[in-house]
Simulated assay, not measured.
Amino acid sequence: MFLAPYYNESGNVVNISAEQASLFAKSKCQDFNPIHDPDSKRFCVPGDLLFALALCKYGISESMKFEFTGMVGDNVGLLFPQHDGEQLTVTNEQGKSLLDIIKQGNSSQDLTLIENLINNYVLFSGRNFPELLMPLMEKHQVMFNTARPLVMYNSMSFDLQSLEVKDELQVKLSDAYLQVEQKRAEEFLHFDIFDGDTNIGNGVKKVVIGGLKPYDHEAISAFSEAYQARRSTF
């Protein structure tokens, strides 16, 4: 399976090392959020990797929602339910919920379709910063703390009109906005899913941004330039 380099599985327990998670974030998503660096004190596995593993295990349904309910650290044992139903919860070995999944409608186990959707969605998802988030922060005159950025994936959902894909999928932004409340903001990224030139679905990704402070163009621009340099030299 194409995700094999990014996780280990023994029996019914899935483990993801910090190095595997960081490689997935950088190579598959072009996501250089410092929270996914192996040496980060606040390291967590990217939500996009958990999303990808869930699709590989349960297939793609016409309607799916993923809510991230806890952070996954280095080599945390993950339990993906062995049963398949409309509501599923991925937990750690102590039973704490980490990812809630709701799926409805017809489903497909087509590995080509699954890989196609994963590759296109996570690339869209991982490029949130600076392309999408920077203009929104400037518009609202707020920004995260560049010394301790806290930009966390909260949830995503999508609805598909068809599981019969004939061409390469494309995930395209349809709308993006911030809802700001004191020191916290929620970012919503609405997207459309295309099969070639045909729109076959839509969805939304929600991101929570903590530790907001007044917008400082010089500081956030310097952070963005350093971020882009990491991306270009990877």
Score class of each variant (00 low, 15 high):
Lys26Tyr: 05
Ser27Trp: 01
Cys29Glu: 15
Gln30Arg: 13
Asp31Met: 01
Phe32Asp: 04
Pro34Gln: 10
Pro34Asn: 07
Ile35Glu: 07
Asp37Lys: 13
Asp37Arg: 15
Pro38Lys: 09
Pro38Leu: 03
Asp39Leu: 13
Asp39Trp: 10
Ser40Arg: 03
Ser40Ala: 11
Phe43Arg: 11
Cys44Thr: 14
Val45Asp: 06
Pro46Arg: 01
Asp48Thr: 11
Leu49Phe: 01
Leu50Lys: 00
Leu50Pro: 04
Phe51Gly: 02
Phe51Thr: 02
Ala52Trp: 12
Leu55Gln: 03
Cys56Tyr: 13
Cys56Pro: 00
Cys56Lys: 14
Cys56Asn: 13
Lys57Arg: 15
Lys57Met: 01
Gly59Met: 04
Glu62Phe: 06
Glu62Lys: 15
Glu62Gly: 12
Ser63Glu: 15
Met64Val: 02
Met64Trp: 04
Met64Lys: 02
Phe68Lys: 06
Phe68Pro: 00
Met71Ala: 14
Val72Asn: 00
Gly73Asp: 11
Asp74Gln: 09
Asn75Leu: 14
Asn75Met: 14
Asn75Val: 09
Gly77Tyr: 05
Leu78Arg: 07
Leu78Met: 05
Leu79Lys: 15
Phe80Ala: 04
Pro81Met: 05
Pro81Cys: 07
His83Phe: 07
Gly85Pro: 00
Gln87Lys: 15
Gln87Ile: 14
Leu88Asn: 06
Leu88Ile: 12
Thr89Pro: 04
Val90His: 05
Glu93Tyr: 07
Gln94Ile: 03
Gly95Asn: 09
Lys96Cys: 06
Lys96Glu: 10
Ser97Met: 05
Ser97Ala: 14
Leu99Ser: 01
Leu99Lys: 00
Ile102Trp: 13
Lys103Trp: 08
Gln104Glu: 14
Gln104Met: 10
Asn106Val: 07
Leu111Lys: 15
Leu111Phe: 14
Ile114Gly: 02
Ile114Ser: 02
Glu115Lys: 12
Asn116Phe: 00
Asn116Val: 03
Leu117Ala: 02
Asn119Glu: 14
Asn120Phe: 00
Asn120Gly: 02
Leu123Gly: 06
Gly126Ala: 07
Gly126Tyr: 07
Arg127Phe: 00
Phe129Ser: 06
Phe129Thr: 06
Pro130Asn: 04
Glu131Ser: 12
Leu132Gln: 15
Leu136Cys: 04
Met137Ala: 09
Glu138His: 13
Lys139Pro: 00
Val142Ala: 02
Met143Asn: 05
Met143Ile: 03
